[in-house]
Design a protein around this nucleic acid. Structure first.
Lengths: 226, 226
DNA sequence: TCAATATGTAAATGACTTGTAAATAATAAC
DNA sequence: GTTATTATTTACAAGTCATTTACATATTGA
């Protein structure tokens, strides 16, 4: 499993990372909150282990932004020295799935990861598929009919979101929120990016996958068959 | 949420049950392990809260049998006074999703239930069906005989409403209210939209589903009878 | 039956939404 | 710093939709 470990205590981070790697996981340790958020979003890790207290952006706020601004449901285990009920409330309300109080046993961490993995990772997501279109969150690369598509960061985010939602319609407002959180630029910028995405995904192909639902938003799906 | 609570300490069970009921859950308390297993299987609870030490059949064994013998993936929170790492290992290996050591705070229990519910209850996409006509609210798309229908926002709303009401007659006034609340345009605009809807739903097909009830309204159903 | 009323459909209009291209500004890479 | 890539703005063409108008057809009840 690809695990992002955000922990600024270097000794603890090394211990945890070594232990998890020995279990066969792929661990990326980072020491700052901002870096953690960026990498969690870009590399779409399968599990986040976050220290509650992090320089730059604390674990709870990181988790909240990940869920709210980026729409990610990546499972989160909060790791912290703060063990009061209030602290736990804050952790869970930020969207954490589990909350482990230091000092904790590595075995218990393993157990909780396994329990979470059973629930949170239905298919070990290697690639998203819609018809002959596929997207690999790890490689940040999309293909259609075997040919790689040229995507920029914005069109990539849109594609990933639309594929995860497929075959449901995604309202324009949701896509705008995905890209710009609250601070959206002019209204019709999204149209631009959708046009670009269409150019990459549909233009060279006969069968169109990206459909407009007038007055609502967009749907990515293979029409006719379902 | 329907919760089965297996706890032989009557005071604790009452406390937990009261608290969860106050949150709007439906709680069934049982005191023995065998009863718990039977009811968990028969009544298909949505969440199990199990004491680790139960008369008859302990919580871990109960959980294991539920998973192995009955194939149930119902989420389980283990509740126990045994806090050693070995005990936790045993609990998780039996298939528990979370493990709470007594004494625990009710708030923390609530938080862990919520975190688990987010993961364990996948959203289901329902479709409305009338004869060979189907409508998927999330896709905002209707199909008949497998072929997608071209609908605009107005005809979509009408179709959804008629399908939910099917096979009952929906009075014109109700449809008008659905579309324009109180400020309806001219009286015969609805006729227009119904005509469009008919063009999409019935025109290309032999068997007609959309029927007019003179002086009353419209009914969407197979055949004329009810 | 006949006429009054209800309903169906087609075409046209105008408001609004969406698609795309080209130009400019902002960022990131080097 | 300079260049390449990306994001946003601007402008306009094309498409879609709700409504209106007009007239044909169907149903009802006397």
């Amino acid at each position: 499993m690809r695990i992002l470990l955000a922990e600024d205590d270097a000794d603890l981070a090394a211990n945890v990372a070594d232990y998890l790697r020995a279990l066969g996981h792929e661990v990326t340790p980072v020491a700052s909150g901002r870096t953690a958020l960026r990498r969690a979003v870009e590399e779409s890790s399968e599990l986040l282990i976050l220290d509650r207290m992090l320089p730059g952006l604390d674990g709870a706020e990181l988790c909240r932004r990940l869920r709210r601004d980026h729409g990610r449901q990546t499972p989160v285990i909060m790791l912290t020295a703060l063990g009061s009920t209030e602290d736990k409330v804050a952790g869970f309300e930020a969207g954490a799935d589990d909350y482990l109080v230091k000092p904790f046993s590595l075995v218990e961490l393993r157990l909780r990861i396994e329990a979470l993995a059973r629930r949170a990772l239905p298919p070990v997501e290697e690639a998203l598929q819609v018809a002959d279109l596929s997207y690999h969150p790890r490689r940040l690369q999309a293909q259609r009919a075997g040919k790689p598509l040229a995507l920029n960061p914005t069109t990539r985010k849109l594609l990933e979101h639309l594929m995860r939602a497929s075959p449901a319609v995604v309202p324009r407002a949701e896509l705008e929120h995905l890209l710009w959180a609250n601070e959206a630029p002019q209204e019709d910028v999204l149209r631009m990016h959708m046009s670009n995405l269409r150019g990459a995904v549909d233009k060279p192909f006969r069968r169109k996958l990206l459909h407009t639902v007038h007055g609502v938003g967009y749907r990515l799906a293979d029409e006719g068959g379902t």
